[in-house]
């Protein structure tokens, strides 16, 4: 049994989300290698080589892999994956985009968002927006999996010294071109990596009122998220959405402000260690998962909280 973990990285550094997949692979046992596909990605590969317990780091460093275009990266992963029993990547938007393409190239039915490893061919995963957990058994020769990051604590990042091996193949489909990107620039931590997350819902009323959350977040070193209702209403951008169809988070502290607690939202945050809910509707479903609930008008409570910190 041997697992190929696909590194998530920006060429200069490896995203720590990769370590969640390493942890899932370790939970299953067997040999683990890491594949880094990128452009001028030697620094990311060097970081991957420091992860303890890794056999080798395979690097496909070529200009055609810039911006992780699925059409080019997927055949590269499929080429290397052919020698393994398992392929794993943490379910970021990059992996969700590429991994099913890899699976189809290998004629494999991928398994998305694995939240538990039962055995080498049997896995648990949430379905119906997390309303149910399915146990599924794969009969494919290669198991191609995306891993729900919050379900596995990240493996250690340092202490190892794996060998680094290059592969030369360049797959260029010529079908897609990167035009540009608009990355939200923020001094706050990334939502899925933050220890504290403060999220606002439809109760916030408008986008300007999110400033109250940003102010709190800056005092606590927290990230700011939102419910799908707040995104739908146009208060904040979609990349702030916490929920089954947005980001899945599990911080030490999750503060839900003006969020009723639709199942869609709960699916994205209910694994948080401590949940606080502030809502003026005492019947709101969010209170059924909150460790500490405060029934209050958020426009009164938030300034008080800000002043108390």
């Amino acid at each position: 049994m041997s697992t190929l973990v696909i590194a998530e990285h920006d060429n200069d550094s490896m995203n720590i989300a990769t370590l969640n997949s390493v942890a899932a692979a370790q939970a299953m046992g067997g040999d683990i290698d890491i594949l880094v596909v990128g452009t001028a990605c030697q620094a990311a590969a060097a970081q991957a080589a420091q992860v303890p317990g890794i056999g080798k780091v395979i690097v496909a460093d070529n200009g055609v892999y810039a911006h992780s275009l699925a059409e080019n990266v997927a055949p590269m992963i499929a080429e290397v994956a052919a020698g393994y029993s398992h392929v794993m990547a943490t379910a970021t938007t990059t992996a969700k985009n590429i991994i099913p393409r890899v699976a189809a190239l290998l004629d494999v039915q991928a398994i998305s968002d694995v939240s538990g490893v039962v055995s080498e061919d049997t896995f648990k995963r949430p379905i119906y927006a997390g309303n149910l957990i399915a146990t599924v058994k794969s009969s494919d020769a290669i198991k191609v999996l995306t891993i729900r990051g919050t379900a596995f604590d990240g493996a250690p990042a340092e202490g190892g010294s794996a060998t680094i091996e290059a592969v030369a193949s360049a797959h260029d489909s010529g079908k897609s071109t990167f035009v540009g990107e608009e990355v939200a620039v923020s001094d706050r931590p990334e939502l899925t990596a933050a220890d504290i997350v403060i999220s606002g819902g439809r109760g916030m009323g408008n986008g300007e009122n999110f400033d109250m959350l940003y102010s709190l977040a800056d005092k606590l070193g927290a990230a700011v998220g939102a419910s799908r209702a707040a995104v739908d209403a146009g208060f904040v951008p979609n990349d702030m959405q916490v929920g089954q169809t947005g980001k899945i988070v599990a911080p030490d502290l999750y503060v839900a402000v003006g969020i009723s607690g639709a199942i869609q939202h709960l699916a994205g945050m209910k694994d948080s260690k401590v949940i606080v809910a502030i809502n003026k509707d005492e019947e709101a479903p969010i209170f059924s998962v909150a460790d500490y609930g405060l029934v209050a008008d958020l426009f009164v409570a938030l300034p008080e909280l800000d002043a108390a910190l």
Binding site: L132, I133, S138, I275, L294, A301
Partner: peptide
Amino acid sequence: RVTLMGVELPAERSAGIKVEDIAQLVDKL
């Protein structure tokens, strides 16, 4: 290619307590 072995309900998270005000909330946290 994949067999569904069964389904289960996710672990229920039980409701905690209601706090009276912000001061109590901050104290608890």
